[in-house]
């Protein structure tokens, strides 16, 4: 399992003209690595994650997963790749009218057949349910299994999203500033949980919290204006590098 990006650019059309979210990004991530993506808002961190989980296609350049170009994949090949990559989003968007258990069960979707997913909507197989309940237990939400997602607090929803990743059991875990909207106490708790969940998997995390990144991630990639500012071991990241990374200097890119 490895990611390889070569001269990748991502351009979004917008009313004010095209916006360059990523520009000439070249990067390689090997299996089992733990990489933190740092950078100011709009540096391109979220865009990069979208390329990793194949929900966006690069405008130029190529991203390869195990040597296969992601942009060339479609249909069931694409599903097969996505199944191996789990994502925890900044604002988790659970399906509001489904229960916490059902939302966790969604982690199975990539491996279920259509018939099985239809049946599971009515009544999931006991083995599938066991996996989902175990995941909810890991995140400490077993008692909320039957609650609708829109009745849960923000932190609880974030934990259901993590449970979903556990159910999915992917090789790669991507997280997009998962603690941005939580209070500090919760952040520490969830960070531990996430690191626990990511054990034995590749972890690529876009983070706001520089200390958290330096403490737990051996490799740091700094992004600024859609370009790679630095790519270094955590021990080698100097305060100067960080100051430059976060210096006020808008360059019209979005993340």
């Amino acid at each position: 399992m490895s990611f390889e990006l070569r001269e990748v650019a991502l351009v979004y059309p917008s009313r004010a003209g095209a916006v360059r979210a990523l520009d000439g990004v070249t990067l390689a991530i090997a299996g089992g690595e733990r990489v933190a993506l740092l950078g100011p808002s709009g540096a391109g961190k979220s865009s990069l994650l979208k390329l990793f989980n194949a929900t966006a296609r690069p405008t130029a350049g190529a991203i390869r997963f195990e040597g296969r170009r992601l942009a060339a994949l479609a249909g069931s090949d694409l599903r097969a790749v996505r199944r191996r990559i789990g994502t925890v989003f900044q604002q988790p968007s659970l399906v509001p009218s489904l229960t916490a258990l059902q939302n966790a069960l969604c982690g199975h979707l990539g491996s279920w057949s259509l018939a099985r997913s239809l049946r599971a909507l009515l009544a999931a197989a006991p083995s599938d349910t066991r996996v989902a309940l175990a995941a909810l237990k890991t995140v400490g939400l077993l008692d909320k299994a039957a609650a609708r997602a829109d009745e849960l607090s923000g932190g609880q929803q974030q934990r259901v999203a993590i449970a979903r990743v556990l159910v999915q059991d992917p090789e790669v875990v991507l997280t997009d500033e998962p603690f941005a909207s939580l209070d500090p106490g919760l952040t520490a708790q969830l960070a531990d949980l996430l690191l626990h969940v990511a054990q034995g998997r590749t972890l690529i995390a876009a983070l706001h919290d520089v200390e958290l990144a330096l403490a737990h991630f051996p490799r740091i990639v700094g992004l600024r204006g859609g370009r790679v500012a630095f790519d270094a071991k955590a021990a080698e990241v100097s305060p100067q590098m960080l100051r430059e990374l976060y210096a006020h200097e808008a360059r019209g890119a979005v993340g």
Partner: peptide, 27 residues
């Protein structure tokens, strides 16, 4: 947004319909 998350997991179009769109639209 919830439907897009299912897409990222690897759900196909009809699976997204069943698990993402239908639950939100059924009422």
């Amino acid at each position: 947004a919830p439907v897009e998350e299912l897409r990222a997991i690897g759900a196909g179009a009809l699976q997204r319909l069943l698990w993402g769109m239908w639950p939100q639209a059924r009422e």
